[in-house]
């Protein structure tokens, strides 16, 4: 479906009406989803603690960027890969952004930043979501699994093993999201058909187009599960 160009060319809310007509704002302003989410606050990070029992829990301490004046933050509790984190973030920040910048979980990638490519796919309370368009505050109190949470220590999940053996990736940038989507599929359907695999991965773009090997890897992993 094509976007209505007239809608996208409306001046950005940041443009004051007095400036319209005389001064134009750049494309970044017109098309940005950040612009849409703007004006809600700036970022702070505190520490994370507590655990759900796996191994000993490291304290996660992130670099604290300065806060813009007059911007607000919200408290947030996230359970990510079995660890409980307490943070404070600007309400406009996405879950993907917080996972990457504040928790250092850079396995989750941001590529389109608007729910089109699936590189940011994580499992939230058992369901896959695009973390780039999930506000971090919406994940408050939820359980999140990222690609870093698939292996148990050094033991890889069968889908990870299968990806290696089948060469089911090339550049690897979409791979974390694809793997998480595959894991979610196998969790709910341990014996997926080829058509079910394709459908489950239809929200994850792979520009290297490793799709045939990805399908083979899911089937190989299903046999081992």
């Amino acid at each position: 479906m094509r976007k209505n160009i007239d809608d996208t060319l409306k001046p950005h809310p940041a443009v004051k009406s007095s400036e319209e007509g005389s001064l134009s704002q750049g494309l970044a302003a017109r098309f940005s989803r950040r612009g849409f989410l703007k004006g809600l606050g700036s970022s702070v990070i505190v520490t994370a603690a507590a655990s759900t029992g796996l191994v000993s829990t490291p304290k996660v301490e992130a670099y604290v960027p300065p806060v813009g004046e007059g911007l607000q933050t919200r408290a947030l509790r996230l359970k990510v890969n079995g660890l409980l984190y307490r943070l404070e973030v600007e309400p406009r920040r996405s879950l993907a952004d917080v996972l990457r910048k504040e928790l250092g979980l850079t396995g989750t990638k941001i590529s389109c930043n608007r729910a089109e490519c699936g590189a940011c796919t994580v499992i939230m309370n058992g369901k896959t979501v695009y973390s780039c368009t999930t506000l971090a505050v919406r994940a408050n109190g939820k359980e999140i699994t990222t690609v870093e949470g698939l292996a148990q220590g050094n033991k890889l999940h069968p889908i990870q093993e299968a990806f290696i053996e089948s060469d089911a990736y090339q550049c690897g940038f979409c791979t974390p999201g694809v793997l998480v989507a595959c894991k979610a599929l196998l969790d709910r359907n341990p014996r997926p058909t080829r058509a079910e695999i394709k459908l489950a991965l239809s929200g994850n773009l792979c520009r290297c187009a490793a799709y045939n090997h990805i399908f083979a890897a899911v089937e190989a992993a299903a046999k081992k599960l």
Partner: peptide, 13 residues
């Protein structure tokens, strides 16, 4: 976020 906020505040004629 601040970097993109700033971009939106640049006016060009």
């Amino acid at each position: 976020e601040i970097a993109y906020d700033a971009i939106h505040l640049i006016a060009v004629k």
